[in-house]
């Protein structure tokens, strides 16, 4: 049972975070709270990807000069083979660097749109805006 939890709890954590973000996006009335929920939602997905890049058994950052104990000079000549098990998986980190930038860009555009809404209606609560829209 404990084994089971230890092997899978990172997935459950990201699912919990994602559902918190989803609830905030759907159920909150304030527009800025919806944007914060959207951010939490996207952060949960980034969290999921990064958590899959870990390798148990002492893997370190994927920079080739920090292997445990071996000098890595002379790699070009094939003198020391690189032990892949000693380095974490670099690909999810790369993908998530891009995804974080996309998340921030979307946040920026969403906030610009919220500024436009505020200029027009004077409030950021969704139900008050609906009342103003209905009044014409």
């Amino acid at each position: 049972m404990f084994e089971f939890i230890v092997n899978y709890y990172n997935y459950w954590m990201y699912i919990g975070l994602m559902m918190i973000g989803f609830y905030a996006m759907m159920a909150k009335r304030n527009l800025v709270k919806k944007i914060i929920g959207m951010n939490i939602f996207q952060s949960a997905i980034i969290f999921f990807y990064i958590s899959t890049s870990v390798k148990k058994g002492g893997a370190t950052v994927p920079i080739l000069e920090y292997a445990h104990g071996h000098a890595t000079h002379g790699i070009e000549h094939g003198a020391n083979a690189i032990d892949v098990m000693q380095y974490a998986n670099p690909l999810p980190h790369v993908l998530m660097l891009t995804a974080i930038v996309v998340m921030v860009a979307t946040l920026g555009v969403a906030l610009a749109v919220v500024i436009l809404i505020y200029r027009r209606y004077g409030t950021l609560e969704e139900d008050e805006i609906m009342k103003l829209v209905r009044r014409g």
């Binding site: 996006m25 959207m38 996207q42 919220v114 436009l116 809404i117 829209v133």
Partner: peptide, 24 residues
């Protein structure tokens, strides 16, 4: 238009994030 865009942003981001999750 800004109000319509806000809803578009929220729903479009959900769609893109679900796609990213599937790819993950």
């Amino acid at each position: 238009a800004p109000l319509a865009t806000f809803r578009y942003i929220v729903m479009g981001t959900i769609g893109a994030c679900f796609y990213l999750l599937g790819v993950g």
